[in-house]
Design a protein around this nucleic acid. Structure first.
Lengths: 184, 184
DNA sequence: GTCTATACACAGATAGAC
DNA sequence: GTCTATCTGTGTATAGAC
């Protein structure tokens, strides 16, 4: 009856944090076992492989972003500015914590050319984000231009996250978001 | 008297290419030996360690960017627009080849939180880039705003490179550069 | 269910023959 | 100088005792 020290959810949360900070290849199963207070044996009892764990981490985090952050784009009866602010505020928290940036972007740069394994999960995340940004900007821009605006927004934020990680300074993200808001 | 099949310069060039495409951790010395047609033994005769090789790769590439790309910012008797175009054109070539993006940005995301080892080389590259962009924009903007404009330019380009690697589509970089040129 | 022990492959790095 | 062989550590993954 499972006197479990730690839940599967918590294991995944800790894995996300480590993958985001250290990268996929540099994070070993031993690292994760130690961080969760489990043994490798128990870890492999939960996940068949490191790859499966990473996929689970990506889909879990993607669902979390959708529910906790992007969903604000679809709320009725609030202004686009208000939508933007809500998303921006929670995105700052999510991306700046531990100065880890965006797990999906980090993973693309780390693995894209070596294996296509995680591409579907990563593309799904960016598609959700893009859809949300389209919704935020839909009143202001023509349908045709929307997607491009949305992608540009996303690219600019990801770029700011790189400088954030380089200089260990979160103000790049803040300033970029302020600039993007003026497009509304 | 060295009947050398391959020069040290070529070894470094190949290493840069592999590190840029596959990442630092995912590229093994055996991979590099194979790619250069050498044995591991010979490889370690040229470089004391993988870390030293990476540092050499970063400084070599940084010097190449300075000489072949950023230098255009300091040419006399050409307009800022002309400077921008020259830099943009060669930057597109350098960043889109093999869809590998920017080795310095890739490396930051991969290693920043694990080790500070490559930070000086990477920061040096971004400083050179920033200086060049300041030079390009100096006629149009006040001294005070220059650095921020330059960093924003760099961030936006790096963001476009992430989408490029995600969607395997170089048009993001092109469009970003067109947009940035309008700031001149 | 949890832990110990370990298999197996491959990483970075080195030694020593030629 | 170049290559073969090898050392040592660590990675992912598994088997089997309790």
């Amino acid at each position: 009856m499972a006197l479990q020290k730690i839940s599967k959810k918590e294991i995944i949360a800790i894995s996300i944090r480590m993958f985001r900070k250290q990268g996929y290849y540099r994070t070993s199963m031993a690292d994760l076992a130690k961080a969760t207070g489990l043994t490798k044996g128990v870890f492999y009892h939960h996940f068949a492989s490191k790859e499966e764990l990473m996929k689970t981490a990506l889909t879990t985090l993607s669902a979390w972003f959708e529910e906790k952050i992007f969903k604000a784009a679809y709320l009725p009866d609030i202004t686009p500015q208000e939508k933007f602010d809500r998303i921006a505020e929670s995105a700052i928290k999510a991306f700046t914590s531990d100065l880890g940036g965006c797990l999906f972007a980090n993973t693309i740069l780390e693995t894209a050319h070596v294996e296509e394994t995680f591409l579907p999960e990563i593309k799904h995340f960016f598609q959700n984000w893009e859809n949300a940004m389209c919704k935020v900007f839909e009143e202001k821009y023509a349908q045709q231009a929307l997607v491009e605006i949305a992608k540009q927004n996303i690219a600019d934020i990801e770029g700011a996250l790189i400088l954030m990680q380089l200089y260990k300074d979160t103000s790049y993200l803040q300033r970029t978001l302020e600039r993007l808001k003026k497009m509304l």
